[in-house]
């Protein structure tokens, strides 16, 4: 694999409240190579969106990056000033959010929003920028793009609006796109269209994508590698095929069993009892131990780091048992490398 475009090391995001500090993201390390799609999957409150927000520098105060590093192409971007970060956002990192309505200004024509964004980041005349905007709309598959360029956001349907948002994210040809639940608000058939589009962009432009979603199906279709998050930490990270078919963390295993599939019909779904702990009450030891069918004594007290080989690892003490004897239980600090 090529040099990573994005490297995140030991990222920790905290929210100070008057009842104590909440840790939304705890010691996350991951990396994405150019042209790679890294899926970040987890249930609500797992910290997956917060990880994305930290990378684009959009954590709402009082939340803050408490420690760790974020490197884009070897350059640290987590300690940049607001203005410096603003230049990187859009130019080098594009963002796509769940609700296309909130990402577009309802009062401006799509053309104006695209042209403004293009001209902020690229040295083009209005005419050139408009031509580029048109190309972008064509590229994301909007039919009759010439006509639709001057429409207002509300004149587009949900799926088309999400395409406009993607076009907006592509304006300055960013090398990294953070897509936070880009298909969640859409119908299944539209979802498939957007996934196809993202995959095409990724392969054509060598754009790296961090795809944040709760939907394992979307990950399976789109991502090359996947990080499964639980209670602010990475539970498991590895190539998507491996994680889905040979899950190493009991949580991933349970999650996969909980997804109903067409074909294999069972009377009951595998169920993980309980629910994800609230940030105010993250259990000691492995955060998953109260729900884990295989938890043993160590899990209650000591928090496991990622254990496994360079490509596929899980933060679970069961891995230590499997690993001992063979390669040794080296944690491999940086999951995916």
């Amino acid at each position: 694999m090529a040099e990573p475009l994005l490297t995140v090391r030991n990222l920790r995001v905290e929210f100070p409240t008057r009842k104590g500090t909440l840790v939304a993201v705890d010691d996350i390390s991951l990396s994405i190579a150019p042209g790679e799609v890294l899926g970040v999957v987890g249930e609500s409150g797992a910290g997956k969106s917060m990880t994305g927000a930290a990378i684009i520098g959009l954590i709402e105060p009082p939340g803050r990056v408490a420690s760790g590093e974020i490197l884009l192409d070897g350059r640290r971007i987590d300690n940049l000033s607001y203005d410096e970060m603003r230049k990187i956002r859009g130019k080098e990192i594009g963002a796509i959010f769940q609700d296309p309505l909130t990402s577009l200004n309802p009062l401006y024509r799509v053309s104006r929003q695209l042209v403004e964004t293009i001209m902020t980041h690229l040295d083009l005349t209005v005419k050139q920028a408009r031509a580029r905007a048109l190309d972008l709309l064509k590229e994301v598959g909007i039919p009759a793009a010439e006509e639709r360029l001057d429409h207002y956001p509300h004149q587009f349907s949900g799926g088309m609006r999400q395409r406009v948002v993607i076009a907006l994210a592509l304006c300055a040809e960013p090398r990294l796109i953070i897509a936070d639940e880009p298909t969640t608000a859409l119908d299944v058939s539209i979802q498939a269209q957007i996934i196809t589009l993202l995959k095409r962009l990724c392969s054509e432009h060598q754009t790296a994508i961090m795809l944040v979603t709760h939907d394992m199906g979307v990950i399976a279709e789109t991502a090359d590698r996947v990080a499964v998050m639980y209670a602010g930490r990475i539970a498991e990270i590895g190539p998507v095929q491996d994680v889905i078919k040979r899950a190493r963390h009991p949580y991933t295993e349970g999650l996969m069993g909980a997804i109903p599939t067409i074909g294999g019909r069972h009377e009951l779904l595998t169920q993980i009892d309980g629910s994800m702990p609230r940030l105010t009450a993250i259990p000691e030891g492995c955060a998953f131990h109260p729900r884990c069918p295989q938890a043993h004594f160590k899990c209650h007290t000591v928090r496991p780091d990622l254990i496994g080989d360079a490509s596929h690892s899980a933060s679970c003490w069961l891995m230590e048992r499997q690993a001992s004897g063979s390669v040794g239980a080296d944690a491999g600090q940086e999951g995916g490398r």
């Binding site: 249930e43 609500s44 709760h214 909980a258 009377e267 009951l268 779904l269 169920q271 993980i272 629910s275």
Partner: peptide
Amino acid sequence: LDVSVQAQILNLMK
């Protein structure tokens, strides 16, 4: 609901 919780509710309904 989240997937794991969805499984709980579907199982309960069954």
